[in-house]
Design a protein around this nucleic acid. Structure first.
Lengths: 213, 213
DNA sequence: CATCCGGGTTAATGGGCGTTAACCTCATTG
DNA sequence: CAATGAGGTTAACGCCCATTAACCCGGATG
């Protein structure tokens, strides 16, 4: 108990989660065995079951965790966002970029292994994701009022793809360093959003909320 | 646009590949069993081994195939590209969008399951991918001559992420239809590339020539 | 000192799954 | 008609792997 070592205890659990995230991202959920995860933290195999109910539980905690943190961060930035919507959008973008650059494995898992979750958890994660997206959509539409909601939503999804592209990058120093990368991504995202406006091509009757009518 | 399903013999092999692609994309390479793939084409389990050496062979053929087609398509468009680099870039973008929209499963596999390949195949695929990227980088730098090569390359990767975001889209009709989606993605990509350039303070979005025409 | 118990360990269990074996059946061919 | 081979089928085999069992140990507790 004494152990007031410092801020983050790095409580075994967290250590395990971190390694599991890395491994899952590298080789896929099914691709990595319990023994490997154990080995990554110095214990072996079934020892993990003292901390988690099973392999699935780890994945669930990772995915729910990241979704919650993303949404919480987004809400915070919207709340304390300066007067202008532009400032809020900038903050959202920067926040997401930090995430993408610092927590690569999690970002990867986020949209790769969602289906491996039990129904309940999956629903939870999807709901959090949806709220996060809608949060962006609102801000984007405030900055660029023109496009229909579905258009804005599609743009947000696309920009997420852009920002999350970091993990797929080529190996060595063929790419900019972290700070330049962050700046570049920010610029690209803004550029994309700025282009969504454009003229609505011969009428916007697509706006009907009922598709396929 | 085209898509007349008939002529192609759909030679069992292709049929299998198609279903395998879909399943792999949905549940991951390790997540789907041979029996499922077989069932998807009406035969059962080991019957597949009359057509492929093994599960791995299917994945390999899929990944190599898509990489080759992407590169070939890209080269073609560059070759017959009209005078202006802008036109070539437009063509590249449209080509990639068609791919992303029509062959979702393959696009997904493309950057998800690369590591499950045997060393040789993986090297092959990576080489093809690299060439495809460099092809884009050249064109982009010709259209936007300011940024360093590494910057341009990062931008290209990011735009790939943007264009490939389609598979992650929400289910129902909450999003635009195919044609509008294609137009939107094109616009977003151009917007992103347009922003990669200099350090002009945030101002008018660089509304280049309207792609719609 | 005796007792817990958190956190590990190695061995066993059991199911899933890729692959191979052995066998079957038409269509074609000579 | 016999032979053949492409394309299937169902059983087995074996391996991998998540999970459980059974056991162990060191330190806090009282």
């Amino acid at each position: 108990m004494s152990n007031a070592q410092s801020a983050a205890p790095t409580s075994r659990r967290e250590q395990i989660l971190k390694e599991a995230a890395r491994l899952f991202a590298e080789r896929g959920f099914h691709g990595v065995g319990v023994d490997e995860i154990g080995a990554a933290v110095g214990i072996s195999g079934p020892g993990l079951y003292r901390h988690f109910a099973g392999k699935d539980a780890m994945l669930a905690e990772l995915l729910v965790g990241i979704s919650e943190r993303l949404l919480a961060g987004g809400r915070m930035r919207v709340a304390e966002g300066g007067g202008s919507p532009e400032a809020v959008l900038d903050a959202l973008i920067d926040g997401h970029i930090d995430f993408a650059l610092d927590d690569r494995p999690l970002i990867t898992l986020h949209d790769r292994e969602l289906d491996r979750l039990r129904e309940a958890d999956r629903k939870r994660v999807r709901q959090l994701q949806r709220q996060y997206v809608e949060l962006w959509v609102d801000v984007v539409r405030r900055v660029h009022p023109g496009p229909s909601e579905s258009r804005a939503r599609a743009a947000v999804h696309a920009v997420f793809g852009l920002l999350n592209s970091t993990p797929h990058l080529g190996r060595p120093g063929a790419l900019p360093g972290r700070t330049e990368m962050a700046e570049l991504l920010h610029r690209l995202a803004l550029g994309a959003f700025g282009a969504v406006a454009g003229e609505p091509e011969a009428g916007e009757p697509v706006a009907a909320s009922v598709p396929g009518a």
